[in-house]
Design a protein around this nucleic acid. Sequence first.
DNA 1: TCCATTTACATCGTTCACGATTTAATCGTG
DNA 2: CACGATTAAATCGTGAACGATGTAAATGGA
Lengths: 165, 165
Amino acid sequence: MSNPTDRPGKSAPGANTATGHHEDLDDFLCFAVYEANLAFNQLYRSLLDDLGLTYPQYLVMTLLWRRDVRAVKEIGDALSLEYNTVTPLIKRLEAMDLVSRVRDLEDQRVVKVSLTAGGKALEKQARHIPQCVADASGLSMKAFTELKSSLEDLRNNLKSREEPS
Amino acid sequence: MSNPTDRPGKSAPGANTATGHHEDLDDFLCFAVYEANLAFNQLYRSLLDDLGLTYPQYLVMTLLWRRDVRAVKEIGDALSLEYNTVTPLIKRLEAMDLVSRVRDLEDQRVVKVSLTAGGKALEKQARHIPQCVADASGLSMKAFTELKSSLEDLRNNLKSREEPS
DNA sequence: TCCATTTACATCGTTCACGATTTAATCGTG
DNA sequence: CACGATTAAATCGTGAACGATGTAAATGGA
């Protein structure tokens, strides 16, 4: 039978299924997501070059610009990342003098991350970026909203199968 | 004004804009893509664990299962990846005895990648995966098609801004 | 023919993502 | 109070992604 696709249902007649070739991965939904993510990464890379930030670093800075002083766990939860990813990431931001890390006196297990003066100052230089990305996405307001909502549904469906605990 | 979002247009009243808080990144389209990609990675990780493959390795194997014997460049093009990503990836597949790499006699610059017996045999064990992913995505046929198409549009728009050459 | 350019592939260094494991602080229950 | 369980954070090793750079083979003019 061979149903090499993320497509739900049986072997429905997709675009390039008609040819019977299937040489590429265009029929994978996961691949469309993967490609869109790569494209975003590449776009952000060029936009963030001036700031000296990577894309995940920019996401962390954006969180802090919106609300300063967060525990490492909070940041990890917001980005769906583990400590083993977030800790080195934040240490690099610290090495760039954009954030500082201080142990919480209330709970000595917690490390609070907060913006330095330099980190706060960087926000102004980053203000233009969201609009650039929005323009580059080339989507109508309607398409934008629907796409984002579909992706969130998809993500929730995928996540719900993870830890049924 | 601060328009920290991937959203097109001006400051339209989004879901959590109403509160004025904006503490998270839910308003970023890029973030929805990033999260969906993470979720796919995590799902595939558990599905591919038995096969001993990573997600990108699985994509390469899928390409070869569909049409064997491809140049490294072909594989990179199909995955939108550069040599510096694909070469080590394929070398790891070679180390697992799933593929072999042979220099093309016609054009000595080209390295042809082809399946070993073990690589071919692995296909049977991978047959069930697409259906598992399709089920986990929990999308209707209609939603699936629309989402994939929107993502492809998005990707094309994002890519077109890259190298205007 | 000669040599600059292009093409295919590879190496190195950095960052991100994550599984496995570790340490230290706090919590909960007896 | 004691002590096992949980929680916050970190470390280590591996794989993926990519910028910068390098090498050898093929190509294309002058």
